[in-house]
Amino acid sequence: MSTNSLRSTTGMGRTGDKVFSGAAMAAGILILVVLFSVAIFLLVQALPTFSAKPADLTGGEGFFSYIFPIVIGTLIAAAIALIIATPIGIGVALFISHYAPRRLAQGLGYVVDLLAAIPSVVYGAWGASFLASNLKEPYAWLAENLGWIPIFAGPASGTAKTMLTAGIVLAVMVLPIITSLTREIFLQAPKLHEEAALALGATRWEMIKMAVLPFARPGIISAVMLGLGRALGETMAVALVLSSGPLIASLIQSGNQTVAAEIALNFPEAFGLRLNELIAAGLVLFLITLAVNMVARWIISRHKEFSGAN
C-alpha cells in the first residue's frame, strides 16, 4: 500500500513535469510565432518601397538617402540618452541598494518604479516647455565658449528644442528602467561574498567592485539594452521636443530627426507609397535594435564566467 501511494505520486509528478515543461516550451514557441508574423507583416507592408522608383520616394533620391540621416539621428539621440543615463542609473541603483538606509531605500525604489510610468506625452510636454526654456542660456554659452567643438557649433537655437534637449529628455525617461532593473540585480548579489570582502578589510567601494559589479555585469547590460530599446523606439517625447530638420553635427541647433518620431509625425496623414515607406522605416528601426542586441548578447557571452547561477 505504501509503495502504491509512492508510485502514484511519482506518476503524478512525472505528468506534472511533462505538462509544465511542455507549457513552458509552448509559450516560447508562441513568442517565435508572434514575432515571425510581425516580421512577415512588416515585410509585406514595406516591400513596395524597395521596388518603387527612387524619384517617387520622399526626397526623390531613393530609400537609402531618405532613411540614412534619420537613422544617424536616432543613434545620436539614443547615444546621448545612454551616455547620460547609464552611469547615473547605476549610481542611483547602487545608492538605493548599498548606500541608503534600508527604509529610505524601499521608498526610493518605489518612486523610481513609478517614474517609468509617466506617459511619454508628459515627458514631451515637460521637455518642450520647462526643460527647453531653461536650456536656452546654457546652449548660448556653449556655442560661445565651446563652439569650436563641432557638436557645440553655434549659433544656438532660439527655442532650445534641439537634439541635445531630446537626448536629455530620453535620458530622464530611460533612467527609471535602468535603475529599477540594476537595483534588483545588486540586491541579489551574494551576501556571503560581500561580507567576506568586508571582513577582509575592504572598503565599501572595494567590496562593490569585487563582489557586486562582476556579479551584476550581465544584468546591467540587459538593463541598458532595455533602456536602449525605449530610447530608440520613443516617439511622442521626441516628436514634441525636437524641432526637426536635416542631419547636422551640432547638437544645439535645431535639426536632426529620429526614425520613431518621423513615423509618428507622418503616419496619420500617410497613404499609398508613403505609408509603405514609413513601415519600411519601422523595419529599419527593428533591424537596428536587432544589431544592437546581437552586440550586447555577444558582450554578455564573453563574460559568461560571471553569469548568475553560481
Partner: peptide
C-alpha cells in the same frame, strides 16, 4: 528573438 521584439516600434 525576444531581444529583437523589444525593438518593435509601438505603432507597428
Amino acid at each position: 528573438f525576444v531581444d529583437v521584439m523589444t525593438g518593435i516600434p509601438s505603432i507597428v
